[in-house]
Design a protein around this nucleic acid. Structure first.
Lengths: 338, 338
DNA sequence: TTGAAAGCGCTAACAC
DNA sequence: GTGTTAGCGCTTTCAA
């Protein structure tokens, strides 16, 4: 039915082995033969059967990305970075969207991965996910984004530093009652580190974090909005809030708007992410190079897969940058304007 | 090395054929035998080799999504919807990010798809893409989102109606000088329809679209910003603008802010999309059910793949809804406030 | 209901 | 440099 390597071999007057070698660019093929095989293959519009090739070689030329979400800025941006790199190397990208690990069953059974891909990239799942261990057990080359795991290459930002940077910025502006909007009570390591950065900065300035000034936004816009709303209902609301993600900060800003409170002028907001639309909303944020993180993880994985990378697994840390915008203005100036 | 169907067969005291039948739930297997095979397979932690299964059966259990971008709201939302449906049916999702069709080479050669997937979903590529025809030629079940193609199931909004709705809304508000921010000069069908809707609404109200009030935003925030900026530099700028996408509208709003012009109050903006953050930016927009469009396309494709769907290829049209927000206020009220 | 056996189309030793 | 050949692990007739 469809045209196979045998047809090409026959038409070119060589064996299938030679066709295979010629087409894959392997050495030990007469240049002339190679050329002829190529021409014949093109004429016949021959395409290797991936299934057959995989079965025979044991390689799939495919990488799976396991991510909680596809349709959120951070994740889609990471995915896009990964896609860039894989495409260059002609590796296929399989996406498994596993949902919020806090509420969903979790990773696709490692059984699903076995034999299907040559490598896996895992994007920010909570370290405690037992499924991660399962997955690593099948011995597939793996690379993490946003999570550290012994023996596995990973790319992260310095979450503690990012949290500290944002909080310190608020402190430098003169704020003392600084609230915090976290993700969820049951923290991931990344979230815990951001919280630690907040505490460190506060204590370094001689300030004591007020537990009543912490709220949870579950990393969503809606969550950030209700978190901010609850902070505003405190008897003594904060004058500034460190928010762990831009999406939640967007929600927080909306809450402020709804209450007729001007972000920056009345209550300062600083967060982490560097979301595309942060500039639009005039949000001060600690930017992370998200697409690049995806690219780096993919590069590291390809290295592992191809057996280059003679070095030990790397824990890569990418730099973050504080981008100051209108959501944080000095209290003095705020006082003047208000 | 890894455990195969033969190991299971041996351990269960049956042939490999029976194991295959039993495990796949095929009929003509004694319930007792099936149970035994299942138990043994589980004990041995057996997983079928996808490559072998594919080679033997000719089915891949995989669907490819071809999309210009992953990291933009519309596309990641569509992807997520698709992923939902595929996951339910245990079908793998392969993603090909092909880049802006206007500037990039285009579709992955159909050669890349052949034998690799059982079906393809194509997301909003310009109809003229010659590669589309190539792709269809290999006879893979296909389903389109945002594009119509004869004989292929597709899910679209009524672009003309959406453009008309947004423009009519501006007209109803009392605007007469209504500008338009389009995608690009070389229009896709979808873009052309939106433009048609704009023109129809204008003419229906006895207004003549002013060519100097059209600008191109290339469907990006930055593009929308510069398009709006150029409209503002007109000797006689518009009092309202119909923008073809929310992203561009965001940029337009930023341009207004930069010029000290209040969206809604000074210049009205209405667009199409229903972006997650439109509410935040108080943007009036004609919402489309994006995730659902992805789900519908995936459903239609699965139907085709499984050979159900006895009906003719369907052209599905999903409804849009105008969501009125602060970026469009009646001119009277605008006059009062300004 | 079950088994035997012939492939699916390719890769990779190994021999020449 | 090229050909021969033995699988890769499964599915699927066809018989039994």
């Amino acid at each position: 039915m469809s045209i196979t390597i045998r047809d090409v071999a026959q038409a070119a007057g060589v064996s299938t082995a030679t066709v295979s070698r010629a087409l894959r660019g392997l050495p030990h093929v007469d240049p002339e033969t190679r050329e002829r095989v190529r021409r014949v293959a093109a004429e016949l519009d021959y395409v290797v059967s991936p299934s057959a090739s995989r079965l025979a070689s044991g390689r799939t030329g495919t990488v799976a990305v396991i991510t909680p979400f596809i349709d959120r800025w951070f994740f889609s941006t990471v995915l896009s970075g990964i896609s860039d790199v894989l495409q260059e190397s002609d590796v296929d990208l399989l996406v498994y969207e596993v949902g919020d690990p806090a509420t969903s069953p979790g990773l696709p059974a490692e059984r699903r991965l076995r034999g299907r891909v040559d490598g896996v990239i895992v994007v920010t799942l909570p370290t405690d996910a037992p499924a991660i261990a399962d997955m690593l057990e099948i011995g597939l080359p793996t690379s993490f984004i946003g999570v550290r795991w012994p023996g596995v290459p990973s790319v992260c930002i310095d979450d503690a530093a990012a949290g500290r940077m944002a909080t310190q910025h608020l402190i430098n502006l003169g704020h003392k009652r600084i609230g915090i909007i976290s993700g969820r009570p049951q923290a991931s390591t990344s979230q815990a580190s951001r919280a630690l950065g907040y505490v460190t900065a506060m204590e370094g300035a001689g300030l004591t974090p007020d537990p009543s000034l912490e709220a949870y936004g579950y990393f969503t816009v809606a969550g950030g909005e209700s978190a901010m709303t609850s902070l505003l209902s405190q008897p003594n609301p904060p004058t500034a809030v460190f928010v762990m993600s831009d999406d939640m900060a967007f929600g927080a800003i909306r809450a402020l708007q709804r209450h007729g409170i001007r972000p920056g002028t009345d209550i300062a907001i600083a967060s982490i992410d560097g979301h595309e639309l942060a500039e639009l909303l005039d949000l001060t944020t600690v930017g992370q190079p998200v697409a690049q993180m995806g690219r780096m993880a993919a590069d590291a994985l390809l290295g592992r897969m191809l057996g280059r990378e003679t070095t030990a697994p790397e824990e890569m840390t990418v730099p973050t940058t504080l981008v100051v915008r209108g959501s944080t203005v000095p209290v003095d100036r705020a006082a003047l304007t208000s």
